[in-house]
């Protein structure tokens, strides 16, 4: 994958498939370290499943025998001197179930790839799964971008889904506007 925003989309898709109703994508940059957190309230995983996550030959899906999402993210992170941690509570064991993936990257490392278009990543997530709510935050010395779709949903009411074309176009401009204002 050519930029980090595609890795973020790929990992967040796991939250969608875990049936999450709330998904947060948080990016913060400080002292040349970029921290990415993807937090969901989906079905979670057992300790045993979490342990197997970094093994590319482990997957729960039936259509193919490999699961490359987390191994890819871990490889990218570790290549820059960062690390990935996955904390999860499965719905079989916990009332407050869900998964948090935390990845760090050294942005001044030669193997760090560009962040890419995180706005398109958020738009793609919302388009495919408009009944969930999304929090997005990106903070650094240069940018301060924030979005919470539950606020948008409150204004839109029940009749207009988040993936209505006009709403998606609004969200894109809303986020891009915040990025531009910081520049």
């Amino acid at each position: 994958m050519k930029d980090l925003s595609l890795y973020i989309l790929d990992i967040a898709m796991n939250s969608v498939r875990a049936g999450a109703k709330n998904i947060s994508v948080l990016l913060s940059e400080k002292d040349n370290v970029l921290t990415l957190q993807i937090i969901d309230d989906g079905c979670g995983m057992t300790a045993e499943q979490v342990e197997k996550l970094s093994n590319p030959f482990f997957t729960t899906r039936k259509t193919r025998k490999v699961g490359l999402g987390v191994p890819f993210l871990r490889m990218l992170s570790e290549m820059t001197g960062g690390s990935v941690t996955v904390e999860s509570r499965s719905d079989a064991e916990f009332e407050d179930h869900g998964t948090t993936v935390t990845a760090t990257f050294r942005v001044d490392h030669i193997d760090f790839i560009p962040l890419g278009d995180v706005v398109e990543t958020m738009i793609t997530l919302i388009q495919g799964n408009p009944d969930s709510d999304y929090v997005f935050r990106h903070t650094s010395d240069k940018v301060n971008v924030a979005m919470d779709t539950s606020e948008m949903r409150a204004i839109l009411g029940g009749d207009v889904p988040l993936n209505t074309y006009e709403v998606l176009a609004f969200i894109r401009e809303y986020l891009q506007g915040q990025y531009n204002e910081n520049n």
């Binding site: 948008m152 839109l156 009411g157 207009v160 006009e166 609004f170 401009e173």
Partner: peptide, 14 residues
């Protein structure tokens, strides 16, 4: 800059 208030207009329209 877009503001969330614009969503009210989208709601009416859509």
């Amino acid at each position: 800059m877009k503001t969330l208030a614009e969503l009210a207009a989208i709601r009416e329209q859509m």
